[in-house]
Design a protein around this nucleic acid. Sequence first.
DNA 1: TAAGCTATCTATAACAG
DNA 2: TCTGTTATAGATAGCTT
Lengths: 155, 155
Amino acid sequence: MENINKGLTTCKKKTMGRRKIDIKKIEKRSSLQVTFSKRRMGLFRKASELSVLCGAEIAILVQSPANKIFSYGHPSVETLFHRYQTGGSSSAALSIIPYREDGRSKYDEAVRKLEIVKRSTKQESSSSSITRFWWDEPLDGMGTNLRIMSMQWKL
Amino acid sequence: MENINKGLTTCKKKTMGRRKIDIKKIEKRSSLQVTFSKRRMGLFRKASELSVLCGAEIAILVQSPANKIFSYGHPSVETLFHRYQTGGSSSAALSIIPYREDGRSKYDEAVRKLEIVKRSTKQESSSSSITRFWWDEPLDGMGTNLRIMSMQWKL
DNA sequence: TAAGCTATCTATAACAG
DNA sequence: TCTGTTATAGATAGCTT
């Protein structure tokens, strides 16, 4: 009862396998380093997949607690950031801390509360904003005006 | 044989469940949009988890094929990018297209070839570079000089 | 276009070495 | 600090509504 599975030795399984964890600051230094490495890699892989699957361009900056900055960029961090700024990043982009450690807080609950704040560069497409969805626009070429989508978690 | 599972009706299972896909450009417009949304959300969630678990600060920019830019930032995209630049981003950060569609190309193969290029701002810590690992540095406070880690996939 | 559903695929926590 | 293994937790493709 007490030791949930301290004695793996008594078990025939070789390991306990992945175990569920709470999403909160990892205190143990060693595991934090391991987790940071693995998940950072996982994050970059996910970004890469998204990039290839959808032809999206992505830039990621990760600053570790030890002040190292890791970057992923396709085509490049600078390029994307430049577009981001020139596109009209006047208002600060979202700041998120989705996981609140109080309630059950299933992530989906938070996601459900996710609010999308759309902003356009300048020339708001006045009309047809009802009949036309923002994602339903010409994908190809023609430098349509760039937009910035910013999101906010409402907790 | 031909229709791998077109006739789900003949099956008792309600859906086919998730199916394996190749990591290559999705052509079907509708699925592309759905996948883009789902995976973008997943990417941001992963970032959020990493941020909380490891106390990391993360910024992400995603530009969709339709030229919309989505951003995730904790504390903010600007803050992180600024640090990234002032930290010494003279050389372009990595550009990646990990998935090559030729060989088997299990992702791990690519990851194995991953090369880490470390650069320090200025004062390279001359000595002790042998005995001390870069990740084994004081985590807390004291503005040790910021470093930029950039990676490159060698394909 | 959205949601919601599942079966399945994938990421990864905990161990072993 | 690693690398490799394994079993489970978590993400998601394709379908339905």
